[in-house]
Design a protein around this nucleic acid. Sequence first.
RNA 1: GGCGCGAUAGCAAAGCGGUUAUGCACCGGAUUGCAAAUCCGAUGAGCCCAGUUCGACUCUGGGUCGCGCCUCCA
Length: 497
Amino acid sequence: MLKIYNTLARDKQDFQPIEPNKVRMYVCGMTVYDYCHLGHARVMVVFDMVYRWLKASGYDVTYVRNITDIDDKIIKRAAENGESIHALTQRFITAMHEDADALGVQRPDHEPRATQYVPQMLEMIAQLESNGLAYKAADGDVNYAVRKFPGYGKLSGKSLEDLRAGERVDVTENKNDPLDFVLWKHAIEQEADEVKWDSPWGKGRPGWHIECSAMGSKLLGKHFDIHGGGADLQFPHHENEIAQSEGAHQCQFVNYWMHNGFVRVDEEKMSKSLGNFFTIREVLKKYDAEVVRFFILRAHYRSPLNYSDAHLDDAKGALTRLYTALKSNPPQPSLVREGDGSSPDGPTSHSTRLSKDDSQVAGYDKGRPGGVAVDWNEPHARRFKTAMDDDFNTPEALAVLFDLANETNRSQSTETAVQLRALGRVLGLLQRDPQQFLQGGAGKGGLNDAAIAAQIEARIAAKKAKNFAEADHIRKELLEAGVVLEDSAAGTTWRRA
RNA sequence: GGCGCGAUAGCAAAGCGGUUAUGCACCGGAUUGCAAAUCCGAUGAGCCCAGUUCGACUCUGGGUCGCGCCUCCA
């Protein structure tokens, strides 16, 4: 039985889908005015892992991750660049897809953009108005009347009184209550037509929170299973989403709220405003994308994750161990059987679907064979499942992979190697040819494969002639170029350090 | 000020009221021409103070420190 930590309950709860066998899940995605940083990478990878595990568990999952393509920062950036909103957002949506693909993140089933759902937002605002929860302010904005919604604060555990006491709340004479938030922002003369929509309340554009309520209910229904996002969205964004959705529809909005922890730099939250962020593409110049994915999955999704080169190096070393165990057991196309119906438990099997979805991945595991289905009766797989069912405990699940690697090394058994790869696949890991991973240094050292092969030949000749000084010299040179040689009975192989 | 989260070996990071987490690093051994990889073994832990218990890293209370949200933020 899958347990999920539900922010709403502040506790782990048994996961019970609304509709048997089906899961409807919404995750707050990116505001596209710049490149994604590692914090964004974490949301994408974490919920990709959740998506994969739900599917591997046999659920039919509908996954929505929105794109915010209209907002103050976007307008500002477009103006700075002398670029249209559309050109700017399109550019960064493309970049985001490149980054996500690189990290082995499967595309969500829907990726709605705010600008495509303005009519649905207007509809919702009208509903809120008729329910007495929204009002038009003097400045032309339409605001949500927070005091009129009894459940306000239930997600974040804040009371209106506590919030009031805080000194950081914006005081505006246009709001009935300082905590009220904007549903519809009135248009400003000098703004481009591109950011203005007609509405019953005059020209304007949507506030930030309304898009998720509108798109969520449109694509997943008024009541769905899982809603996720970064921990910083818990308040006010998600709290406001609840107020809007439940206020408009008069029914429960979401059953399970999931929030992932932050990526930190020097024990501090990585964020744009602090300026201490690293973009995904920046990091990918230095580290293999799968190493970055492994690094993220190595910590529990709710824990803080400290970023540093040392930690990435460490992750690389760990992943190298797993791939080394698979070295003598590369993917075997003859063993590939798509969707034989196995799933850890759960209602029905959908593993054919899993295979299909994998083929969409454009990143490092693109073009890989679909892989072998997991034997869920095998002890390691059971441990893996127990870990994943316990609020997606990926560190524990990965520990199982290392045990499997150890057994593979010890026994040279094909079965354990196959199982290792199959379980790795559930996490979106270990699907490459081990040689490709081990030899694929990120442009380090100037040596190409042919030059390395030539050096190895020369060393073999030297060894044959018992000229060990020369053989060692060659090896040392290669090592200085970042290439490690490994002699075995079968011959000499190499990898990049 | 209000609310919340965390503190585990050199580093990273989990589970667990009593029995090896795991990875990297380090030490000893096997293997190797020497290495690397691999295997075997050893070392090494639970912020502080109380309490509950036959027994606590694990539960309870207090303290200390760190982080986050309360403003845009994944």
